[in-house]
Simulated assay, not measured.
Amino acid sequence: MSRKLLPVSITTALLGSAAVADAPNVAVDIAPVHSLVARVMEGVGTPDLIVPPGASPHEYNLRPSEAAALQNADLVFWLGEELTPWMAGAVETLAEGATVTTLLDSDGTVLLDFREGALFEAHDHDDEDDHGDEDHAGHDSHDHEDEHGDDDHTDHDHEEHAKDKDHDHGDDHSKDEEHAHDDGHDDHVDGDDHDHEKHAEHEGGDGHDDHGHGAHDPHAWLSPENAGVWLNLIAAQLSSADPENAGAYFANAATAREEMDGLSAEVSAMLEPARGGSFIVFHDAYQYFENTFDFPASGAISLSDASDPSPARIAEIQSRIRDEGIDCVLAEPQFNQGIITTVLDGTKANTGVIDPLGSDLEPGPALYPQLIRNMAETLAGCL
């Protein structure tokens, strides 16, 4: 009996291995997007994550294994160089033969403009809602004279971006002067250790120039609505590359979209008792979440993802906290915790840690919903 079962078991194992081996090689930039791709690929294959949890997506030096994942990729999914400016050159150089999907450029994605100033007013959210209703058509109507060029952005059309960037990693991804961290590979740095020199030209005020990489806020994954749009796009791209598993990809995407609807309802219920509370975030990354759940922040300590706020900005935030009785100031694990202590000095506001990247979560299909859930729990617990 054992002899008869053994060949069957081996055959089954080989077939299973072949199914995984036949799945496309997929590379994804950050953990939340990787989670969406992993959910669509569930049961078929596993995508590779390029920027590991805890690392800053804005400044990163590829490890050899991550460079190899890009080089071997059949498909690449990334948000775009607004979030990971260094990755444009890496994708163009290493993923030369891959189908590259830039999610921020995809049809149906709702994009929001960066907000200006340390303090957010109510009318700003109305403006964002109007922009959001335009869906991707609104994106097409915005001038990208600075660096984006045509919205007919092909998978590998990074030439214009490469010309505009002075910090291209190069073909061998050597650690250049702008991105080197001490030993050349200190990827998991805190915000206070970031190289601020390349942002110095943007530090003249609280305006748009602080952001440096375009007019649109790139943190679009914090909208479950955008995530739902991307699930279908991910399934379509995977199915095109791997028609034999198209049914599984689209079935997974449909189930995940239903789960996303349930997640949104769950988060709305979690936030309901805290409505009316006021909070300030470390940097302005959360307006997609705020708009989705109608839960606006009162301000941000820092507009830029990679620069510390000026003393004048900190004083402005402290004044707002004291004068308006702000309930909560939220820190982030990637940034300088000492600044939060300074901001809270002399106030009665609570504090908590909110994480838009899921740094402490295991990468995989479950990361995205848990990330959104954790953000809601942090907000509700702080207010």
Results as ranks from 00 to 15, higher is better:
Pro296Ala: 03
Leu303Ser: 11
Glu377Ile: 06
Leu361Cys: 05
Gly276Val: 06
Asp355Gln: 07
Gln370Ala: 08
Leu367Pro: 02
Ile340Thr: 10
Ala315Gln: 13
Ala366Ser: 14
Thr341Leu: 08
Asp360Gly: 09
Gly276Lys: 06
Pro309Leu: 07
Arg275Phe: 05
Glu362Trp: 06
Gly364Lys: 06
Ala366Leu: 13
Glu377Asp: 11
His283Val: 08
Asp355Gly: 08
Pro365Ile: 11
Lys348Phe: 07
Ser304Lys: 06
Ile280Leu: 12
Ile372Trp: 02
Gly338Thr: 12
Met375Val: 01
Ile339Arg: 05
Ser310Asn: 08
Ser359Ile: 02
Leu357Asp: 01
Pro273Thr: 04
Glu324Arg: 02
Thr378Val: 08
Arg320Ile: 09
Gly276Met: 07
Ala331Trp: 11
Cys328Ile: 11
Val281Thr: 13
Ala297Glu: 03
Phe289Leu: 04
Leu263Cys: 03
Gly262Thr: 11
Glu324Lys: 03
Ser302Tyr: 04
Ala285Phe: 09
Glu266Lys: 15
Ala349His: 10
Ile301Met: 00
Ile321His: 05
Ala300Asp: 07
Arg373Phe: 02
Pro273Cys: 10
Glu324Pro: 03
Pro363Gly: 12
Lys348Tyr: 11
Ser268Gln: 14
Ser319His: 09
Ile314Lys: 03
Leu371Asn: 00
Ala300Lys: 00
Ser264Thr: 15
Thr292Asn: 04
Ile314Thr: 09
Asp305Thr: 14
Asp327Thr: 10
Gly338Trp: 03
Pro365Glu: 05
Asn350Tyr: 06
Ser268Phe: 02
Ile280Val: 15
Asp305Met: 12
Asp308Cys: 01
Ala274Glu: 02
Asp323Glu: 15
Met260Val: 07
Gly276Cys: 07
Asp345Pro: 02
Ile301Lys: 02
Ala297Cys: 03
Ser298Gly: 14
Gln334Pro: 08
Glu377Ser: 11
Asp261Arg: 08
Arg320Tyr: 12
Glu332Cys: 08
Ala366Glu: 15
Glu316Trp: 01
Thr342Cys: 04
Ile321Gln: 05
Pro369Trp: 00
Gln287Arg: 12
Glu377Trp: 02
Leu361Asn: 05
Gln334Tyr: 13
Glu266Leu: 05
Asn374Val: 05
Arg320Glu: 15
Ser268Met: 07
Leu344Gly: 07
Gly358Cys: 04
Glu272Ser: 13
Phe293Arg: 03
Leu371Thr: 02
Asp345Lys: 13
Ile280Ala: 09
Ala300Val: 01
